[in-house]
């Protein structure tokens, strides 16, 4: 037998991570490479947890919807990635962090991932534009984007953040932290 089988650090490290999360009101947390099946699994657990808590339908579906849009953003756009070719199919893994929680009777979803420095300005301008709109403005932009052509860099509709703004009655915040010459960490938190 080599190595210790009982190691207090194993429990204390994870217990401290769990406490940090609990102090912040976090109910769900995932940090790692995301796939569509992780999205499905966690999203349905989030929905079940809120239904158990008797949250109203608008909150349950709003939170679920924001979760889906944010995770799909990571899967499509995170600049931190890994991938393998399996036959003629590329298995694409993208790294991101997502948490869902509740503080003071209000739910939140936070999500972060790496992006390229060159994308910071474009993303920031787009988000600022969304944040300045009222409900009618958001609706008009939503429909305009739905009717427009899909941008070439987008694998989805390019409408995710408008959806998030519309589903988050208490709005959302975002921020950037430059990591190195190539990459910046981008994070967003929506409040319901």
């Amino acid at each position: 037998m080599t190595g210790q089988t009982v190691n207090g650090m194993v429990a204390s490290e994870l217990s401290s991570l769990r406490s940090t999360m609990q102090d912040k009101g976090v109910m769900f947390c995932f940090s790692g490479f995301m796939t569509e099946s992780i999205l499905t699994g966690i999203a349905s657990a989030v929905r079940q947890k809120l239904e158990v808590e008797d949250a109203d339908r608008k909150t349950v579906m709003g939170l679920f919807s924001i979760f889906v849009e944010l995770v799909q953003n990571v899967i499509r756009y995170s600049a931190e990635k890994d991938g393998v070719e399996e036959g003629d199919k590329l298995i694409d893994l993208r790294y991101g962090v997502i948490t869902v929680g509740r503080r003071d009777d209000s739910y939140f979803v936070s999500c972060g991932n790496m992006i390229s420095n060159k994308d910071v300005d474009r993303l920031s301008t787009g988000l600022q534009k969304i944040l300045e709109l009222d409900r009618d403005g958001l609706k008009a932009l939503y429909k305009e984007v739905l009717k427009g052509p899909t941008p070439e860099t987008s694998k989805g509709a390019g409408v995710g953040f408008i959806e998030i703004a519309r589903r988050a009655p208490n709005g959302f915040e975002y921020g950037f932290e430059k990591v190195d010459d190539e990459r910046t960490f981008f994070a967003v938190r929506a409040h319901l």
């Binding site: 579906m61 889906v68 739905l146 989805g156 509709a157 959806e163």
Partner: peptide, 12 residues
């Protein structure tokens, strides 16, 4: 029951 934003574009 629920559709995401990419589906919304298809519906439009």
């Amino acid at each position: 029951i629920y559709f995401n934003s990419s589906t919304a574009k298809v519906l439009m």
